[in-house]
Nucleic acid binder design. Structure first.
Lengths: 164, 164
DNA sequence: AATAAGTTGTACATAAATGTACTAAATGCC
DNA sequence: GGCATTTAGTACATTTATGTACAACTTATT
């Protein structure tokens, strides 16, 4: 039995009580939530020995995925899906750990640039093998065709969310 | 341009630096994360006027979806995907608001039962029309066929996560 | 019955995330 | 130039979530 079965049963009861409750959307949203929690927890567990958590990992990977390893706090907030107040806290911690460097921008002195340090880069390349293995394990249940299809459908879902 | 395009560009840079980084799994995980955040924020915004947040809504709906409107804290933790320590806090708040009632179980005095009150039921039926509209809007970008397909693929993904 | 082993739930300390208000700097306008 | 408006970033207070330890109780074993 899937871990999702009880959720479906509850949904059936709910629809018995309130027939207008839309089955498909509710199922999709709940599935997304379940999956997200699992993925998030798995990543946290993997990263713990490295002394960082999932949001910090995301920050590091956003910098790693940028030419020059550099972003502003606001770009980073956007990229990592965090609120800007959160970015301050997270990058403070990463600076304290010596993984990221914070410098003032010349062109616009309101701005700050955040750059991955050599130490940060080394850490990333240290945990990436494990991360890759985790990602492949997590998505390993799907055939390439299914995976591509899932990607297409999730993108469509997200695009529609962005519009509405 | 989709809000996801920058993420894909960053992934391309990442793969340039670390070719072993698996594209498909990373894309899927990041899509799920983006969608989850959006859905979560939307729900919070809708529920704010009702004086509750998304996790509290989840608790209420788990009770609403159960015969007898009653669950134990541990069942509830499982159902809502929250840690048990969190359930104590959340249900305390819901009790304070008069939406949920906490009583001691007769059969096993370690146990506690949490039951939806009439007031809680009334609140649920008050916000359900808006919730239904939101859910339909969120998933409205997909045709029924696509929706069913997405459901199937997400379930497969989740089942595989549960095994590993 | 006595005791060991396991469950259930909560309290408390800690960590993580968010909202609000504010400072400093840039931009546009007159 | 001076003044209003907008933008970037952060500090602080508050809210939300988690981890750990513990107390109360049941169940199993002998």
């Amino acid at each position: 039995m899937s871990s999702f079965t009880p959720t479906e049963q509850r949904l059936a009861v709910t629809r018995g009580r309130y027939p207008g409750f839309p089955r498909e959307p509710a199922i999709l949203v709940r599935l997304i939530k379940h999956i997200y929690k699992r993925v998030h927890d798995d990543a946290n567990a993997l990263l713990k020995p490295w002394g960082i958590n999932h949001p910090e990992y995301n920050i590091l990977m956003m910098l790693y995925g940028t030419e020059g390893y550099t972003l502003n706090p606001s770009q980073l907030a956007d990229a990592a899906g965090e609120k800007s107040a959160n970015i301050t806290r997270l990058t403070n911690e990463l600076c304290d750990k010596g993984l990221v460097e914070r410098t003032a921008s010349d062109e616009d002195r309101r701005k700050v640039t955040l750059t991955l340090t050599a130490k940060g880069l080394a850490m990333i390349e240290g945990f990436l093998p494990d991360i890759c293995a985790l990602l492949e394990r997590q998505a390993g249940g799907l055939q390439p065709r299914e995976s591509a299809q899932l990607e297409r459908l999730l993108k469509k879902f997200l695009d529609h969310l962005d519009q509405g």
